[in-house]
């Protein structure tokens, strides 16, 4: 039996205390920042998640530089063109790594072991990335973006969302590309990574999952 007074003290702290207790209970430090991993993680297929996140960091960083300097810089100056190209090629790598990560997790049935939410946030991240890449192509301000938006408007009008999501409206597409979709993608990616930390990496099918405390060494 716990002492009611102690119990009341532990539960004090208002909503911030409640959030802290929930966060520590859900993601204790050893889970949030683990220093060991199961042996089955020693496979190249487990590398593609972090490669995807790394590419996303470069995408966001170069995107911030482009936002700071503006189109007069990225279309004309050589440094601007270089950063613009970095933005494009880091996106190419991001999608490349993400698709291999997706295939790896699909064939591993990565939704096993109460990891359904991890799988779903990853899938929605993929969809948000497609939208972010698409609106990025629309905001290049060249003939390519003009062609893509001209073609896309017919498809989007056909499914009935063209009036609300107007690909010919440059301002709207730019806001989707640099505000809404990065916020959604950044938030979902953070949640996805936290869920991976909470449930642990998915073991290969038929692998033996190590029991907590069975640590023999550090990774």
């Amino acid at each position: 039996m716990s002492d009611p007074a102690t119990s009341r003290e532990v539960r004090s702290g208002g909503w911030t205390g409640a959030v802290r207790r929930y966060a520590v209970r859900t993601l204790p430090p050893e889970k949030l920042l683990p220093d060991t991993q199961p042996a089955y993680m020693a496979s190249w297929i487990y590398v593609f998640g972090v490669l995807t996140v790394s590419a996303l960091v470069v995408v966001v960083a170069t995107g911030c530089l482009l936002a700071l300097e503006g189109p007069g810089w990225w279309h004309v100056s050589s440094v601007g063109k270089y950063v613009n190209s970095l933005h494009l090629w880091s996106v190419e790598l991001f999608m490349f790594f993400m698709v291999i990560h997706l295939w790896g997790k699909f064939f591993m049935a990565a939704w096993r072991g109460r990891r359904a939410m991890t799988w779903m946030t990853g899938a929605v991240c993929f969809l948000a990335s497609v939208g972010a890449a698409f609106t990025g192509y629309l905001t290049q301000q060249n003939f390519d973006s003009q062609w893509i938006s001209g073609q896309a408007k017919d498809g989007l009008n056909a499914v009935g969302i063209g009036a609300w999501f107007n690909v010919l409206d440059f301002g709207q597409m730019l806001m989707w590309h640099i505000v809404l979709l990065p916020l959604a993608l950044g938030g979902l990616t953070g949640l996805h990574v936290l869920l991976v930390r909470r449930r642990g990496i998915v073991p290969p099918i038929d692998a033996t999952v190590p029991t907590p405390g069975a640590v023999e060494g550090r990774l």
């Binding site: 991993q37 199961p38 993680m41 020693a42 496979s43 297929i45 593609f48 291999i100 023999e216 060494g217």
Partner: peptide, 13 residues
């Protein structure tokens, strides 16, 4: 990525 061996690290559980 599936077939190539991963470099061995020091003790893993």
């Amino acid at each position: 990525a599936v077939l190539l061996p991963f470099p061995k690290g020091r003790g893993r559980r």
